[in-house]
Write a protein that binds this DNA or RNA. Structure first.
Lengths: 74, 74
DNA sequence: GATCACTAGGGTAATTAGGGTC
DNA sequence: CTTGTCCTAATTACCCTAGTGA
């Protein structure tokens, strides 16, 4: 089947180990995220998982979103 | 110059426990710093926090220059 | 065809988050 | 006002063996 895999697939896929290194977690944890549906995953014919780099980077963009810097007073 | 954050994915991350060990405080205290916006943090999909090593080192450097600087001698 | 690194899967400890209190 | 400690629930880390990927 020649599907339209040519257009938007310039997307780089990351392995569980690579994603784990970016988040500073164990590769098994990344697998658990995929099983829980917290992160999109693509399975190889053999059952291994691959993750979209753009999606992973979007999650990492959550920098300093804890507090909304209140008016600093001296 | 200031630290630019546009390529931050290659940044090494530290766990709350590691940061706590560096500052000699309780991990709970590190969590409070993050909640107060005193330190930047990245959240894993599971809700756990990760901290940038470079930022932590900068804060540690500030502590060193706080009172450990004797009169500079020529 | 054979080798090596990585991954899936399950099960059990260790960390962390969150609130409340001193 | 900041820190340390109490609790419970959730998330994560490390153990193993077999299969997949390159």
């Amino acid at each position: 089947m020649s599907t339209t895999v040519h257009a938007g697939s310039t997307e780089r896929l990351l392995t569980p180990g690579e994603v784990a290194a970016l988040f500073r977690v164990d590769p098994k944890t990344v697998t658990r995220w995929a099983s829980a549906g917290r992160i999109g995953s693509i399975r190889t014919p053999g059952g291994h998982r691959r993750f979209r780099e753009s999606e992973v980077r979007s999650m990492l963009a959550d920098l300093t979103s804890e507090a909304t810097l209140p008016p600093a007073r001296p």
